[in-house]
Design a protein around this nucleic acid. Sequence first.
DNA 1: GAGTGGTCTAGACCACGGC
DNA 2: CCGTGGTCTAGACCACTCC
Lengths: 229, 229
Amino acid sequence: MAETQKAYFQVIDYIKQLAKEQKIVFGGKIPSERELMETLELSRNSVREALRSLENMGIIESRHGKGNFLVNHMGRSLSSVFSMMIFMKQSDYRDLNTLRRAMETQAYLLAVERMDEEKKKKIAAIIKTMKNGSHKEQIQADHDFHRAIIEYSGNQMLALMMDALSEVCEDEITLILENATTEYVDIWLEVHGKMYECLVDEKPEEGIEAVMKHYEWIDNELKKMENGF
Amino acid sequence: MAETQKAYFQVIDYIKQLAKEQKIVFGGKIPSERELMETLELSRNSVREALRSLENMGIIESRHGKGNFLVNHMGRSLSSVFSMMIFMKQSDYRDLNTLRRAMETQAYLLAVERMDEEKKKKIAAIIKTMKNGSHKEQIQADHDFHRAIIEYSGNQMLALMMDALSEVCEDEITLILENATTEYVDIWLEVHGKMYECLVDEKPEEGIEAVMKHYEWIDNELKKMENGF
DNA sequence: GAGTGGTCTAGACCACGGC
DNA sequence: CCGTGGTCTAGACCACTCC
């Protein structure tokens, strides 16, 4: 009794094994369903159920007519959990925003530690666009700015999480930015300017304050939207 | 062309619909595979692939001989992503610990805001056990203490994330605590004491410092372990 | 046209849980 | 014993991709 593992775990373990032993690299093709069926002595049914699981975990990707490929899309699988939670009314966008604040605060601290001249230049360019660009360019710059901080944190898991969270609330954020009045655009520019300054001057404490302010602003906007804007 | 959705999305949408309309509640049974097969005019194959996906997302649970049930196990699906990332060497326990620090810092801030007498009493009891209990009880108290903070944050998504992260690194943490020398136990007690005090006195800034110290300690221990303890 | 994923047919047997 | 999930058989056809 006890561990009567479901058959498809064999497939999952087999693929994980191949991946671990580097017999397949990311982007590489895994054996076809018919092959796996013979190799592992399973029906095509069971093989496909296993592949569906792996696809869901973001380990493989099925491409019609081509095959199944080893990929690294675990972020997508995180997004689907978050959007499902919102769908199931277990959480809302403000909860999600709180998580984003937590992530970005941490990322910011790490990014400050890892700053160098090249990174500073890149961020400076983004801030410039944010100040002088068209409204559309500003929104893009906002996205790039936050993405840069996450990237410079050097923590892949944090980046994965943040991307997943951002993906889920992307539409909400865009909506907020598109409808921001000029008064708020000024606040927004100021906050990002501050975040930038403290990043290059390596003054994390003050920078964190700006990050907090940034997310409080979003939180207020979300609150307004909840109340039927 | 374009959106030739895979057949099993019909099943997923159907179940999501039933859940949204509250025709099935959490813990309730969804139609059997044979029923779904007829209702949606699909083969049992496709139905099962869909159910496998839903199971992976933590939406349903299959119970042999009983049926498929609507559940809320999305945290598990998060855990599997994190452990998969570690398996695939995309991240390590220290990255994960950084995420935990980010989560707990945020949770701590929220918990301070939402403190009340009853909660204070509960935490006081945990701290007492931590100080006077056996080593095993202390480890349990540590777990309870952090869980309480997360719970009192009032953010379900944050709790879900934290639980998932903790599940993945539970063994590592337990190992660290079990092997802590008395010298370190003192530091550990002091940090938790400080976190507790600042929680009841509603002094978040100082409390956060203690949280940081707490995670830096874990980080150091993890570093030691990496270097082949 | 060959190979591959996506889906279906029309059954079947086993293992498990509840009555 | 019946209903249910877990698995299998031994095929089949379609749609897609690549050559």
